[in-house]
Amino acid sequence: MAEGGGCQGHKAERMDYFLQQMINGLTLGGVYALVALGYTMVYGIIQLINFAHGEIFAAGGYLGVIFLSFLTANGFMETHPGLGIGLSLVLSMGYCAMLAMAVEKVAYKPLRQSSRLAVLLSALGMSIFLQNGLMLTQGVYDKAYPTEFTHGGFDLGAIRVSYMQIGILAVTAILLVALNALVFRTRMGKAMRATAQDKVMSALVGISANRVISLTFAIGACLAAAAGIMVGLYYGSVRYDMGFVPGIKAFAAAVLGGIGNITGAMVGGLIIGMVEIMAAAYLPMGGQYKDVFAFVILIGVLYFMPTGIMGENVDDTRV
């Protein structure tokens, strides 16, 4: 046991303390950013706030447990831990993409010509349906992730970095770069951007709106599923209602960045994560009010910049 740390100076002035908290904030922000992208992309294309998105995130977390438990039981995780996680990640992303496309077909497509309120209610209903579905099939208890090796970390000077933090940041970065390439460098991405800008006009030039919308849901779900698994691995467990709070925070992040704006969602996610951690780190009683600070920032930004920090009508970057 160590003696009290009086000789190190006040924590508020110390760089290592700040850097440590910054890494914490980046990790959390990365997760929010991944989930926020799904909200913002769907909004960009059909102006719908897809409330069922948080549940896709939770489903991703559960699929991770299922695949990883299967691989652990077969002894595969002991020999190839990295490959096992990668495989679970890809499988869950694929499954969630199909789930999201099914949700879109069942709950949103029949209402495409209806009022926006009808679709919104359908989304809320879908969210409740999926959450209860998870509860009934997977049980009300927390499910533990089967891996132990995610508990490790290393020291970087006075800063402690865990392998999982590095993992989350790396996977987030890779997915964000891949997403950017997909949206801005491929024909598919061009079709998505065209549909977002003008559905009628893009249909006239031969772009199938249905296909593009399905694809948008699928991509958003892939990102959410990846976030779900990483949250499960990082925190060690999943529960059926795990999608609700991160869903709300990610939605706030999407609005903060300018809903419909991909870069905005990434930035918004990082800001929300960072504000939460820094409030808890530096403000007295910050720990218990960290959510309040995150939402106060959101209200402040919306008051002064109603379209979010990055703007919601920058048509080039809108999906």
Partner: peptide, 9 residues
């Protein structure tokens, strides 16, 4: 779920 800020303290 995230206690990283308070645990860093």
């Amino acid at each position: 779920k995230d206690f990283s800020a308070v645990l860093t303290k």
